[in-house]
Amino acid sequence: MSDDSVRDAKRRLRAEVRLRRRTRSAGELGSATAGLTEHLIALVRDRVPALVGCYLSGGDEPNTRPFLGWAAANGVDVLVPVSRQDGLLDWVPATEGPEQVGLFGISEMVGEVVPASVFQSVDLLLIPAAAVDSSGMRMGWGRGYFDRALASLEQPPPVFAVVYDEEFVDSVPCESHDRPVDGVITPSATRTF
């Protein structure tokens, strides 16, 4: 498959995912959030990481906010990303404090950016995706922020993508710069590759 064909296939799949996400009922969202939160908590309890990196959900993304609330209440240290103009991510401690609208209209927590060395010590990384396939290949949203964050890690921790059940698929189109994940968390299950 040519690079142009792969990019076209990614665009089509992302459009399908966005449409499905926008048409979920409140009941479906509530049920999905409960399942995701249960599996995220179980993963952290099982692995006992000293420091977790986790995306702050917004819009139609699978909801990580109840998990972040649980983490704060249970003494689990979590960093959340802040997008930069240069295509990289900074990381701030997750708090229940104020948020601001960052690049691309994405909500971000307000806080002091931690040094890059702190991000290097993350023990578990929970990242968004448009889809993940049965081999662990992750398809993001096309801006490459999380791919670059993963590439920057000297000793990458286990990386789990968080998606809805129907976004765990047989295969996703991929390019040479795309990186697989170690596992996927959906409302119904946690799978490790």
Results as ranks from 00 to 15, higher is better:
Asp3Val: 13
Ser5Met: 13
Val6Gly: 03
Ala9Tyr: 06
Leu13Tyr: 01
Arg14Ile: 11
Ala15Asp: 15
Glu16Met: 08
Arg20Thr: 09
Arg20Gly: 12
Ser25Met: 10
Gly27Asn: 10
Leu29Thr: 12
Ala32Gln: 02
Gly35His: 07
Glu38Trp: 02
Leu40Val: 08
Leu40His: 02
Leu40Ser: 03
Val44Ile: 07
Pro49Thr: 06
Ala50Trp: 11
Ala50Phe: 13
Gly53Ser: 14
Tyr55Trp: 08
Leu56Cys: 12
Gly58Asn: 10
Glu61Ala: 09
Pro62Asn: 13
Pro66Thr: 11
Leu68Phe: 14
Gly75Gln: 09
Val76Pro: 03
Asp77Val: 04
Leu79Pro: 01
Pro81Ala: 15
Asp90Ser: 15
Trp91Asn: 06
Trp91Gln: 05
Thr95Pro: 11
Thr95Tyr: 11
Gly97Cys: 13
Gly97Thr: 14
Pro98Trp: 04
Glu99Ala: 14
Gln100Pro: 01
Val101Leu: 14
Gly102Cys: 13
Phe104Asp: 05
Gly105Asn: 12
Glu108Ile: 03
Met109Thr: 09
Val110Tyr: 10
Pro115Ile: 07
Ala116Met: 01
Val118Lys: 09
Phe119Val: 04
Gln120Ala: 12
Ser121Arg: 15
Val122Tyr: 02
Asp123Phe: 07
Leu124Glu: 00
Leu125Pro: 01
Ala130Tyr: 01
Ala131Phe: 07
Trp141Arg: 13
Arg143His: 07
Arg143Phe: 01
Arg143Lys: 13
Tyr145Lys: 00
Phe146Arg: 00
Arg148Asp: 02
Arg148Val: 05
Arg148Met: 10
Ala149Asn: 01
Ser152Thr: 05
Ser152Asp: 11
Ser152Gln: 06
Glu154Ile: 03
Gln155Tyr: 09
Pro157Gly: 04
Pro157Leu: 05
Pro158Phe: 06
Pro158Ile: 02
Glu167Ile: 01
Glu167Thr: 03
Asp170Glu: 14
Ser171Leu: 04
Val172Ser: 06
His177Trp: 12
Val181Gly: 03
Asp182Glu: 10
Asp182Leu: 00
Asp182Met: 03
Gly183Gln: 03
Ile185Asp: 00
Arg191Pro: 01
Thr192Leu: 09
Phe193Gly: 08
